[in-house]
């Protein structure tokens, strides 16, 4: 034992270092899958992006769909609502964003938003409140016809999820 310690203090033995290094690589290769198994699995990922048909949603009508377990508002806005949203000066907004930035070009009537209030996650009620948009029943946040926060404790606008138009009546969310 004594000779061993002297030996290793003077010169790190290559064999010991190599064994330790290979062992460490092996341990890391075992640990990662044990953590990675908690990531979303293949069946969850398969539903990470969905296609949704807008056909049949009339002007002024709103539907709620489910995406990644979250409710999503899809609203076909009326001309009046779009006009109202565009008329608001950015300086009046708590979380400034233009109406254009919250819709897709050429499809300004469609508003797609995650339906959880940015305050604490309740689902706001549509076509209500002072701003003709959404009003959250839990803590009184009020959103306008572009889903922007206008009054109440919510800090930011309702979140627009990543989505794109595949054609005029079909969107892909996620």
């Amino acid at each position: 034992m004594a000779t061993q310690t002297q030996h290793s203090t003077t010169r790190r033995d290559f064999l010991f270092v190599a064994t330790g290094a290979v062992g460490a690589v092996g341990a890391a290769a075992v640990v990662w899958p044990l953590i990675n198994q908690m990531n979303p699995d293949a069946s969850t990922l398969a539903l990470a992006s969905i296609e949704f048909s807008l056909a049949g949603i009339e002007e002024g009508q709103s539907v709620t769909i489910l995406w990644r377990g979250l409710p999503v508002f899809v609203r076909n806005r009326t001309a009046k609502e779009i006009e109202e949203a565009k008329a608001v000066p950015l300086s009046e907004l708590k979380d400034p964003a233009t109406d254009e930035s919250r819709t897709k070009e050429g499809h300004e009537n469609w508003l797609v938003m995650i339906a959880n209030c940015t305050h604490l996650g309740c689902i706001p009620v549509g076509e209500s409140g002072e701003f003709d948009g959404w009003a959250c029943p839990c803590h009184g946040s009020q959103f306008d016809t572009a889903g922007r926060i206008r009054k109440g404790p919510a800090p930011t606008n309702l979140v627009v999820p990543p989505y794109e138009f595949i054609n005029d009546t079909l969107i892909k969310i996620g």
Partner: peptide
């Protein structure tokens, strides 16, 4: 492959420690 390599190294290490 890894295990065979590692076993070889472990055997060497063990022998070295037990030498003498």
């Amino acid at each position: 492959l890894f295990l065979v390599l590692f076993a070889g190294l472990m055997y060497g290490t063990k022998r070295k420690i037990w030498a003498g």
